[in-house]
Structure formats: C-alpha cells, structure tokens
Computed example of a mutant assay.
Amino acid sequence: MIADIQKSNINDIEEIFRLYKIATDFQKSRFTVHWPEFERTLIETEIFEHRQWKITIENRIACIWATTFSDPQIWGERNNEPSVYIHRIATNPDFRGHNFVTEIVKWAKEYAKENGKKYIHRAYQPIMIMQP
C-alpha cells in the first residue's frame, strides 16, 4: 500500500468535513473536550493557503491535517520559536492502524527545514528538528 502526502484541494472539502465529524464524534464519546464544528471558510482558507494536507492511499483520503507557522493561542510566548504547528489530525476509519502520525512527523521535519523552522509542535508537544 503506497501512501502519498499532498496538499488538499477544494474538491476534498466534503471528505475533510466528513473526517472531522467522525473524529469529533469519537472525541465526544471519550472525552469532555472535543473539537468545535469548523467553519467552512476556515477550511477553505487553509486549502487556498496550502495549509491543509492529506495522505492518500489508492486515490482515497486516508488522513488529513492542517499546518500553520503561528499559534499564539495555544503556545503563548513559545509561539516566537520558529515552528511548524500541526493541527487536527483526523484519520479515515478505513485506514486506522497505519501510524499516520509517525509519517506526518517525518514529513513535517522536512517541511519545517524547507521553511526555515526549527521545531514541530503537535498535540501540545514540541519536537526539535535541528540543533540550536
């Protein structure tokens, strides 16, 4: 099974929302804190700014996530570190168990280097990719 990481496009938006709904429903069943319902304009903006990503397998979306280079609401003062922030990883239930987070972090290390960033932040955990 060959996985491919690509930028999401506007044709993916319905599947992106489907995967976010599945992930949010799961969060609601397990946790008291869960994702809110996302505005369509937010996802469209991420797509147009090339910040919404996908892993495809056999032409199907297996996993999605968003990136940004700034996230002061979560990281506060640490937001000043040159970082890539990974948000809202959601996996298609048909593809669970493929360790996509590991693949995303590996991809993000290269993405960060290409964009002059030193850290990757995901799920409130910094990952240093280059020595200071």
Rank of each mutant, 00 (worst) to 15 (best):
V84A: 00
I61L: 03
N11L: 04
F100T: 09
A3N: 07
D12S: 06
S83I: 02
K21S: 06
A23S: 15
S70R: 11
W35K: 06
N9L: 02
Y111Q: 01
S29F: 04
L42V: 10
F69S: 00
N115C: 02
N115Q: 08
W107S: 07
I64T: 14
T45H: 08
P36R: 11
R18Q: 15
R30N: 14
F95Y: 15
Y111G: 00
P72V: 04
E44P: 09
D12Y: 11
I2D: 05
T32I: 12
F31H: 14
I2N: 07
I64R: 08
A108E: 10
K21D: 05
A123N: 14
A90G: 07
G76C: 06
K117W: 14
I22P: 05
N92R: 04
H34E: 14
I129K: 08
T24V: 12
K118F: 03
P126D: 10
H50L: 11
P126S: 13
T41E: 13
I2Q: 04
E39C: 05
G97S: 09
K7L: 14
V84G: 00
S70K: 13
E44G: 01
F31M: 07
Q73H: 06
W75G: 01
I47R: 00
A112C: 02
Q131W: 02
Y111H: 13
T24Q: 13
D94R: 04
D12T: 07
R96E: 08
F100W: 04
A112N: 00
R40G: 01
E37S: 01
W65I: 06
E81S: 02
I16W: 08
I127H: 10
Y124F: 09
M1F: 10
I2L: 02
G76A: 10
G76Y: 12
D94Y: 12
I22D: 07
Q73C: 01
W107I: 09
Q131T: 03
G116N: 14
D94F: 05
M130V: 15
I104R: 09
G116T: 02
Q131S: 08
N115E: 01
M1H: 07
M128Q: 15
H121D: 02
F17S: 04
T102K: 12
K21H: 07
H98D: 04
E58F: 08
P82I: 01
Q52K: 13
F69K: 00
A66Q: 10
D4H: 09
N9D: 15
E46A: 07
K28D: 13
K28F: 12
E103T: 08
R78W: 10
R18A: 12
N9H: 13
K7W: 03
E37Q: 12
A3E: 14
K117M: 14
N59P: 06
K7V: 02
V101D: 05
A66W: 00
I57F: 08
R40K: 15
N9I: 10
S83G: 06
A66Y: 05
T67Y: 05
Y85S: 00
F69A: 00
P82W: 07
T41D: 03
Y111A: 00
F48V: 08
K54H: 10
N115P: 09
E103W: 11
I43L: 10
F48R: 14
N79Y: 03
Y111V: 00
P82V: 02
S29R: 11
I5A: 02
N11R: 10
G76V: 04
W65E: 05
A23R: 15
F26W: 15
R88T: 11
H121T: 03
T24R: 15
E58K: 15
